[in-house]
C-alpha cells in the first residue's frame, strides 16, 4: 500500500539504501519472537486498523488520536536515515513520516514535561513473542524532552514509499537515527509526558548493557562486543572489512543536546 511523501533534501545520506528485502526480513521485534526472521513470519496478522495512540501525562491537551488523524497531522516527508543496531550491524532506510515535534506542539506539554515515554502494543493474541520472558512487556522506551523535540526524531508511518510493513513497526513508530535501533519504539499505542525519567525495556532487562541514552558511540563498548565498527547489511561481508562506526551515527547535529555530559557515564 503506497504512502505519498515529499523527499526532504535536508535528510539524505550518501550511503546506498539497503534492499527492501533485507530491511523487511532481518528485524528485531521481540513481540514477534527473538530471531531476526521471526517478525516477518509472525507479524503478518497484526491488526493495524483501527489503531489509536493515547497522548497523556504532562500536557495541556491530552488526546487520543486514531491512525488517520495522525497521518494527516503534518505533511509526510521521505527521509533517508542510517540505522545502527546495538548488535553491530547497520542499514540505510528511506522512512516516511514527520518530526515528532509536530505532534508534541499540538498537545502542548506543560512546564513539568521533561521526558517522553513511548509504550508499544502488547497483545498476547497477536504477538507470540510475549510468551518469552525476555523483556518486561509492554515494551517501553523514552527520550528527554529536548531529544524528542529535535527535528531528526521522526514519527514514522512508512518506508520505501509504502506504509510500514507489520514487522517494521506498523502502523506508527519512532525513528531516532543517532541512537541504537532499540530506542525507536515500534507499533506505538501510548505517548506519555513525564516529570521523571521513565524506565525503559532494555534498561530494565540489563542496565549494565543498555543505558537510557543509548546514543551510537564508537568509544563506548557494549560489555560483550566492541561498538567501534559495524557491518552494513548487504554490503560489508566476506571480502570487505567492517566499517568504522561514527559518533552519533554521523548525525553531529545532535551533539549540542549532550554538551557537558559524560557520555561514557550516561551511555
Amino acid at each position: 500500500q503506497k504512502l505519498a511523501a515529499k523527499a526532504n533534501p535536508a535528510y539524505v545520506v550518501m550511503d546506498k539504501a539497503t534492499s527492501y528485502k533485507d530491511a523487511t526480513t532481518y528485524n528485531n521485534f521481540y513481540e514477534f519472537g527473538s530471531d531476526k526472521s521471526d517478525p516477518v513470519e509472525n507479524a503478518g496478522n497484526l491488526k493495524t486498523r483501527p489503531w489509536t495512540v493515547a497522548i497523556e501525562g504532562e500536557v495541556k491537551k491530552p488526546m487520543t488520536l486514531d491512525i488517520d488523524s495522525l497521518l494527516k497531522l503534518a505533511p509526510m516527508e521521505e527521509r533517508i536515515y542510517r540505522l545502527r543496531c546495538v548488535e553491530g550491524w547497520s542499514m540505510v532506510i528511506p522512512w516516511i513520516g514527520y518530526s515528532l515535534s509536530e505532534l508534541i506542539k499540538k498537545v502542548e506539554p506543560t512546564g513539568n514535561a521533561r521526558y517522553v515515554e513511548f509504550t508499544t502494543l502488547a497483545d498476547n493474541r497477536q504477538m507470540p513473542g510475549l510468551r518469552a520472558p525476555v523483556l518486561e512487556w509492554p515494551y517501553v522506551e523514552g527520550l528527554r524532552m529536548d531529544e524528542a523535540m529535535h527535528p531528526l526524531a521522526l514519527l514514522s508511518f512508512g518506508m520505501y514509499g509504502q506504509v510500514l510493513p507489520n514487522q517494521s513497526g506498523a502502523p506508527v513508530r519512532m525513528v531516532l537515527p543517532w541512537k541504537y535501533g532499540f530506542k525507536s519504539a515500534k507499533s506505538i499505542v501510548k505517548i506519555r509526558f513525564l516529570k521523571d525519567q521513565p524506565r525503559t525495556a532494555w534498561n530494565i532487562a540489563a542496565a549494565r548493557e543498555y543505558g537510557f541514552y543509548s546514543n551510537v558511540n564508537p568509544d563506548v563498548d557494549h560489555p560483550r562486543w566492541s561498538q567501534a565498527t559495524e557491518r552494513r547489511i548487504g554490503e560489508d561481508g566476506f571480502f570487505t572489512k567492517k566499517r568504522k562506526t561514527l559518533m552519533f551515527n554521523g548525525y553531529n547535529d545532535v551533539a549540542s543536546l549532550y554538551s557537558g555530559m559524560d557520555l561514557k557515564k550516561y551511555f
Binding site: A23, T25, Y26, K36, I233, G237, F238
Partner: peptide, 14 residues
Amino acid sequence: VFGFTDRLGANPIE
C-alpha cells in the same frame, strides 16, 4: 548450498 543460492539471509556471516 545456501551461500551459492543466496539463502543465508541479510547477514550471511552471522
